Amino acid sequence: MTTTVPKVFAFHEFTGVAEAVADHVVNAQNLALSKEPFAIRNGGGASGSGSTQAANGSLAVPQLSGHVSRQASTRSISGREPSTPASGSSNPNIRSPSSSKLKKIKEKRFKIALSGGSLIQVLHEGLFKRQDVQWGKWDIYFADERLVPFDSPESNFGLTKRKILDLIDTATYGSPRVFHINEALIEDPQECADDYEKLLIKGFAGRDSVKLPMFDLFLLGCAPDGHIASLFPNFQENLRENLAWVVSVTDAPSGPSNRISLTIPVICHSHQVTFVVEGATKAPVVKTIMERPEKGLPSSIVNEGAAGRVAWFVDDDALTDVFVTKKKYKFLVHTQEPERAHTES
């Protein structure tokens, strides 16, 4: 394997990683939300992508419990549509957008995939220091999920709910739409994977036929054993899957044995793929990924498959004895100095 070397941004400590990752996420958000035509963005009082005023709506996540019905799980992912922009204008030469254009404005979303683990703490640490996160325009999917009840500490959705979703000031910033697995299906990994794939098809394909979903940003960690999402080294069948969007995982070598995971082609098809890795325990696997890509670890496969669109945010401990060219991260949407106080959950 002749992997293209990804961008590696290194920081002295965890706080630096968290602030830079938050800036990186907000930049991806702004890029995604600014794709509508300029005339539509500015006509009839519609807000541009720089506005922090998001759509109103209740947080579309269920309460944590040991069991939810399939019907309840389906309802939990459907947030309210944004309010229709005001169309009154004193200038008769400015035409209000048509209803079809307004629909396009309302439907523009920032689609992000999250893995679990320490990444969620990084996001918690960084995003809540900012005032430019347009939560109401986010569609949050999960890179993988452990098939455990949502109230389990092992649940990626459960952790994200406790550390991020429950803490959002929805009155100010709106509510993200959250797309999680059906908790009622956790005893059947294949059915759960099939059901989540249908959810992805509904969110990305709609009436059109698309080969792969395209996330605006795919955020991943990397475990000391080299697995990303729930794609493990030496699980060749899953690593070579090139048709399914979601696969079931059974007999995982660490953590909960039953899981689902988005596949390598889905990850590599994203506009941006970002790894967030910290701690000295990760240094040996990072060394293998960066210096021995021919070993074929999942991260190396992604570095190759999404070449030019991959970035790594790491602390210095994770780069101990790793030979790699470090880059200095330049803040892109750093419009104000981040608050230094930590937001406790």
Rank of each mutant, 00 (worst) to 15 (best):
F275S: 00
E304L: 03
K326A: 10
F331M: 14
E278L: 13
V273M: 01
A283T: 04
L319P: 04
T320Y: 14
F323N: 14
P293F: 06
T335K: 12
E291C: 06
P284F: 03
S300T: 08
G296M: 02
V310K: 01
V302G: 05
G296W: 01
V273P: 01
L332M: 13
P338K: 02
F313Y: 12
V302A: 05
D316C: 04
P284I: 06
I289T: 08
L319I: 12
E291Y: 04
I301N: 00
S299G: 12
M290E: 09
H334D: 15
E339P: 00
M290T: 07
Y329E: 09
Q336L: 11
V333Y: 06
A307Y: 01
D321V: 05
A341K: 14
A306E: 01
G279S: 10
A283Y: 04
K287N: 11
E291G: 02
T325P: 02
V322G: 01
I301H: 01
L332V: 11
V266E: 00
E337W: 07
V286Q: 11
K330F: 12
H271C: 09
E339M: 06
K326G: 11
V277L: 05
T335S: 11
K287E: 12
E278T: 15
E339K: 10
A280I: 15
A280T: 12
E278K: 13
H271L: 06
E339L: 08
A307C: 09
F323P: 00
H269R: 08
T281D: 15
V266K: 02
K327C: 11
A341Y: 10
A280F: 01
H271Q: 11
H271R: 13
V285Y: 01
K295L: 12
A318H: 09
P293W: 10
E291A: 04
T335H: 13
W312K: 07
K327N: 14
D316L: 09
R340V: 14
D321A: 14
T335C: 08
V277M: 04
E304P: 00
P293S: 04
G296V: 06
I301W: 05
T274P: 05
P265G: 02
P298S: 05
K287Q: 14
V324C: 11
I289L: 12
T335W: 08
I301V: 14
K330A: 13
C268V: 09
G308D: 00
H269S: 14
V277D: 03
W312Q: 07
K327Y: 12
A307R: 05
D315V: 08
A306K: 01
K330E: 15
S270G: 08
S270W: 02
W312D: 07
R292N: 11
E337S: 12
K282A: 00
F275K: 02
A311M: 10
V273C: 02
A341D: 15
V302F: 03
Y329C: 07
V285R: 11
G279D: 11
R309T: 02
I289R: 03
P293T: 04
Q272D: 09
E278N: 15
E339I: 09
V324I: 15
